[in-house]
């Protein structure tokens, strides 16, 4: 399944004095099975973009296509888009409302009009996926759980719709290092199981580790697009936009500035480890001569 944004522009409150164009002429295709990272400064329009992918926002200009079909066309079933494209907002635990974890996770499937048995099955499956299959937990109130657990319940609530594309707005925001890592591993495993992932992130280290493709936005437009190695080849450009660069990229830049030959496309720690080892062995070899 593929979602395509064609010349999408979105203006909030058009015609009012508060009129603001959040995204401008964005063209983007989300390819089936990819892990796409959306990067950009706060206010660059990435959240607005994300809300177009599942039809929550309607473009002021342009079209959003789901497998070639315009989702805002008359007669197109919006519920189908909402089911196929799951959207996890920032701090999703703030949307929990039911008496029990199971009921909350089942809210989406219930809205799809599924039978009770099917709902129960999906709830179980979703809770298993997010690692919350502890006995008794499903019957607890979601408000009794820890922050990290609440966020996973909210994730399960989206997963229970069995989306093919999962759009996540800063899924690790506000979590401590351990819960952060758990969350990222969870997303990565969902991706490996075949879910297409679109993740908004401020952490370039996370982008470097997980994304297969990255899109950089500035002032509502896409300014860079490509595999992480291509994006991180322009660290100066990213820093100019006020974005971070993975620490190992910074190390590479620094080494090159010092006149040490360090390969360009290092952005993950494993890569840096290998490159530095071979540099050292090479350098040590020279020293021995």
């Amino acid at each position: 399944m593929q979602v395509t944004l064609e010349h999408v522009t979105h203006t909030y409150q058009p015609g009012s004095p508060f009129q603001a164009t959040a995204i401008r002429n964005v063209n983007l295709t989300i390819r089936s099975g990819e892990f796409l990272a959306l990067i950009g400064h706060t206010g660059c329009g990435k959240s607005t973009l994300a809300q177009h992918i599942n039809g929550l926002l309607k473009p002021t200009e342009g079209r959003v296509l789901l497998d070639g079909q315009d989702i805002h066309q008359k007669g197109f079933n919006k519920k189908e888009v909402r089911q196929k494209v799951g959207l996890v907002f920032q701090y999703p635990e703030h949307q929990l409302f039911e008496e029990t974890v199971a009921k909350d996770v089942g809210f989406g499937p219930k809205n799809l009009g599924l039978p009770e048995g099917e709902i129960a099955q999906r709830v179980q499956e979703a809770l298993d996926k997010v690692g919350l299959s502890l006995p008794g937990l499903a019957e607890k109130s979601p408000f009794e759980l820890s922050g990290g657990q609440m966020r996973r319940v909210a994730m399960a609530g989206v997963l229970a719709m069995r989306p093919e594309i999962l759009v996540l707005d800063e899924p690790a925001a506000g979590l401590d290092p351990q819960s952060r890592e758990d969350m990222l591993q969870l997303i990565s495993s969902l991706h490996r199981q075949g879910t297409t992932v679109v993740m908004i992130s401020h952490s370039m280290d996370d982008v470097a580790r997980f994304a297969s493709r990255a899109v950089v936005m500035e002032h509502g437009t896409v300014v860079m697009e490509g595999a992480p190695e291509e994006i991180f080849r322009h660290p100066e450009e990213l820093e100019r936009m006020g974005l971070d660069v993975p620490s190992v990229c910074k190390l590479g830049m620094r080494l090159r500035a010092m006149g040490i030959e360090c390969p360009q496309d290092i952005f993950r720690e494993e890569q840096a480890e290998l490159a530095l080892l071979s540099l050292w062995k090479g350098g040590a070899g020279h020293g021995a001569e």
Binding site: R254, I260, E273
Partner: peptide, 25 residues
């Protein structure tokens, strides 16, 4: 762990770059 004798206490990119420069030049 791979045998490269980086000194203990390296924390920042600058320190790391200096260490690499020291070892590889």
């Amino acid at each position: 762990q791979q045998g490269m004798p980086i000194r203990q206490g390296v924390m920042t990119v600058e320190e790391m770059a200096e260490e690499v420069a020291r070892l590889c030049r």
